[in-house]
Design a protein around this nucleic acid. Structure first.
Lengths: 210, 210
DNA sequence: CCTACCGATCGGTAGG
DNA sequence: CCTACCGATCGGTAGG
């Protein structure tokens, strides 16, 4: 049982890396088994089905994003823009911490069965709503621009953040925290030069933050 | 021959819609044929292989993005920030104009053979470099903030733009041009409220700009 | 564009 | 975790 748990985790870790590289549909059960040096049929001593492996990976990833970001979003003692900065850092941290897991969640969840797909869609909608909610709080508090489209902006932000899973390399020049800081500056202040403005902003999301 | 050309286009259009819905690897040749009301084997009167269909779709999409965006990027009579705004509009226009084609290009190109994949990767790198180049020109001209990371910012922007292919619906509330305008504002000015600043900016990328 | 067919591979099971 | 095996489906071909 104890060894079964860790073997199961090995399977999910190996499978998520393969799903990231080749996609779920193009990865066979025997591909996963070969990477673990066992026979294809032997996998079924540990998992009920191929889809079950994907479901575990996707569920775990969703849990990780929720666990990292939700407490930040809910901390009303912090200004919305500071929470947003920390949510960005947390989200990118989850991605960088396990690229295969996050990529499988982000890209391969559509290969789940209809009911599981619906569950994931609901969780993703809730997650997006959390980002949208922070933007709306920021508008209400006068921190963020009232003309923005919170729904569209939350989608744009999450697309950009999730794109990190596609190109991030642990050996790259930028750390996850540096990437997150730049994303925060970009989101809050944009690309345009504003000569009269202090830059970075002293206490909210600038590149000196955290 | 004439009918072959249009039949070929029908096949690619049908296939790209299925690839968008289910993914290339999970779409069988017979799925494509069934959608066209012909037998699976009959497809091979028109195409050499399943991968060939994907290759045509991906090449066409790459051509469309290039044709729409490159002339704007090269027009040095316009300020970089104006070109950026128009590139964003053009890019989103290509996506909205043919969701299946664009989505297949963006998501399914990794299922091409190694050499074709390398060709697509090179084109995508060049396309990204074009956006990065505009940002660098904008910095050099004093329009854009010199502290930005052009490479990272170009990736963030393109990820956000490409994300539109995942959620855009022609029946939605926002037109492609409206989405593009909001993305432009978001990119250039960010989310933060700046009470002293005229908003939208009078002649560059504000929401009144085309 | 069809019927008939091919070898290969798929996810998964039986029985140890 | 293995060997042996299953029916289904895959991309693709032959021959009309």
């Amino acid at each position: 049982m104890v060894s079964d748990v860790s073997r199961r985790q090995q399977i999910e870790s190996t499978a998520s890396a393969l799903f990231r590289e080749r996609g779920y549909a193009a990865t066979s059960v025997r591909d996963i088994a070969r990477a673990l040096d066992i026979q294809g049929a032997s996998l079924y001593a540990h998992v009920a089905s191929k889809e079950d492996v994907l479901w575990s990976i996707v569920s775990r990833a969703a849990d990780r994003f929720d666990a990292a970001v939700t407490p930040i979003a809910r901390d009303r003692t912090l200004p919305a823009s500071v929470r947003l900065a920390r949510m960005i850092t947390a989200h990118i941290g989850v991605i960088a911490d396990d690229l295969g897991n996050a990529s499988s969640f982000l890209q391969e969840w559509r290969f789940l069965s209809a009911d599981r797909r619906a569950q994931v869609a609901a969780r993703r909608d809730g997650y997006e709503a959390m980002f949208r909610g922070i933007l709306e709080e920021g508008i209400a508090a006068g921190e963020l621009d009232p003309l923005m489209d919170a729904r569209l902006d939350a989608r744009a932000l999450l697309s950009a953040l999730n794109g990190v899973a596609g190109w991030y390399r642990p050996t790259g020049a930028l750390t996850p925290a540096q990437i997150a800081d730049r994303f925060t500056s970009l989101s809050l202040d944009g690309l345009r030069r504003r000569p009269g403005l202090s830059y970075p902003a002293p206490d909210e999301g600038g590149r000196t933050l955290r």
